[in-house]
């Protein structure tokens, strides 16, 4: 019975809410999470290089052609 009463008591936490204001940071954002930066930056750079390479080697050439041809496939 005691437990039930405690469970139905409204919570009155006086704690101040924490601030999370940074993409790569913790707490108030002043401490940078370098492990996260270390993953995202190389992946981002590789992606950019890959896109440039794909564009230069013609992978995006006539990209709409297959979308047009899709309509001609017999169901």
């Amino acid at each position: 019975m005691m437990i039930f009463q405690l469970m139905t008591e409204p919570m009155k936490s006086m704690a101040e809410p924490m601030v999370h204001g940074s993409w790569f940071g913790v707490g108030d954002g002043t401490i940078v999470v370098w492990s996260l930066v270390g993953v995202i930056v190389p992946v981002g750079l590789v992606s950019i290089v890959a896109f440039i390479w794909a564009g230069k080697t013609g992978h995006f050439k006539n990209i709409q052609e297959i979308a047009d041809r899709q309509l001609d496939i017999e169901d």
Binding site: E65, D68, R69, L71, D72, I73, E74
Partner: peptide, 9 residues
């Protein structure tokens, strides 16, 4: 629409 149909048999 520009198409160059592939074989759809």
């Amino acid at each position: 629409m520009t198409t160059s149909p592939v074989s759809t048999s």
